[in-house]
Design a binder for these strands. Structure first.
Length: 208
DNA sequence: AATTTATTCAACCGCTAAGAC
DNA sequence: CGTCTTAGCGGTTGAATAAAT
C-alpha cells in the first residue's frame, strides 16, 4: 500500500513558510517531524528544522556580510578551521550555513586559497570535547602558522550583542591547555586566548 | 538576442551524538 | 543493557541567477 506521503523537496514556497512559521509560533520549536502530520505540510522534519533555523527564525540576520563580519570570519576560521557552527556561534545572527557558504564562495577565492588542503576538518563534537581542539589549536597557534603581531596590532569589533550559546550547547566546550612560543613567555590556555582574541569575556559568551 | 559558462547559496545527504524509552 | 527517535554538524549538490561569449 503505497501511502501518498511523498515529501516535497527543493525551494520553499511562501505558503510553506507561512505554515511552518505558524506551527512554531503555536507549538514552539522542536519535534520537527510532527509537523507533516499536524499541518499537512509535505516536508520532512529535518527539512522543516533546517528551514526554520537557517531562514525563518527571527534570530537570523539576512543580507550580505559586513566588513566587520568578514574580518571576524577570517580570524575565527584561522583559529577554528572548518567548524562552521563554532564560528557562527560567535557571529550574532549568522548561521553555520551562511558562514560556510560565505567562506566557500567569496572568501576562499578572495583569499586565494586553493583546493581544500588538509585543513582543520574536525568533524564534530567528540573531537572538540577531547583532545581534538587542543591539538588543532596547538597547530594553529604554533609560531610557524600564526601571526601574533598582526593579531595583537589589530582590533576586533563585533556589531550587536555578544553571541550566545543558545541552540548550540557549546557551554560544554573545553579547551585544552595551549602553550606556544615558550621563548617569548607567551602562555595562555585556549579559553584565555579566545578572550584575548575577540575581546569578549569568556563567560559572557559561553554561558548563555 | 541567443546561447553558453560561471557563480551563488538554499537545501539536501550521510553521519554521529545525545536523549528517550 | 539495546533500540529508536531527535538534534546537530559539515560536505556537497543543483536550480536560479549573473556574467560572458
Amino acid at each position: 500500500m503505497r501511502e501518498e506521503k511523498q515529501n516535497r523537496k527543493g525551494l520553499w514556497t511562501e505558503e510553506e513558510d507561512r505554515i511552518l512559521s505558524e506551527y512554531v509560533r503555536v507549538h514552539g520549536r522542536g519535534h520537527w517531524n510532527r509537523i507533516p502530520k499536524l499541518t499537512g505540510l509535505k516536508r520532512c522534519g529535518k527539512s522543516c528544522r533546517m528551514r526554520w533555523l537557517n531562514y525563518l527564525s527571527p534570530n537570523v540576520k539576512h543580507g550580505d556580510f559586513s566588513e566587520e563580519e568578514e574580518d571576524l570570519v577570517v580570524r575565527l576560521h584561522k583559529l577554528l578551521g572548518n567548524r562552521w557552527s563554532l564560528i557562527a556561534g560567535r557571529m550574532p545572527g549568522r548561521t553555520d550555513n551562511q558562514v560556510k557558504n560565505f567562506w566557500n564562495t567569496r572568501l576562499r577565492k578572495k583569499l586565494g586559497i586553493e583546493k581544500t588542503k588538509v585543513e582543520a576538518t574536525r568533524s564534530r563534537s567528540s573531537k572538540m570535547h577531547s583532545s581534538g581542539l587542543a591539538e588543532e589549536t596547538q597547530r594553529i597557534l604554533s609560531p610557524e602558522n600564526f601571526d601574533f603581531e598582526r593579531l595583537q596590532s589589530s582590533e576586533v569589533t563585533v556589531a550587536g550583542n555578544p553571541p550566545n550559546a543558545v541552540e548550540m550547547r557549546n557551554e560544554e566546550l573545553q579547551f585544552g591547555s595551549v602553550e606556544f612560543g615558550n621563548s617569548d613567555g607567551f602562555d595562555m590556555d585556549g579559553r584565555e586566548f579566545l578572550e584575548f582574541y575577540d575581546g569578549y569575556p569568556f563567560d559572557e559568551i559561553w554561558q548563555n
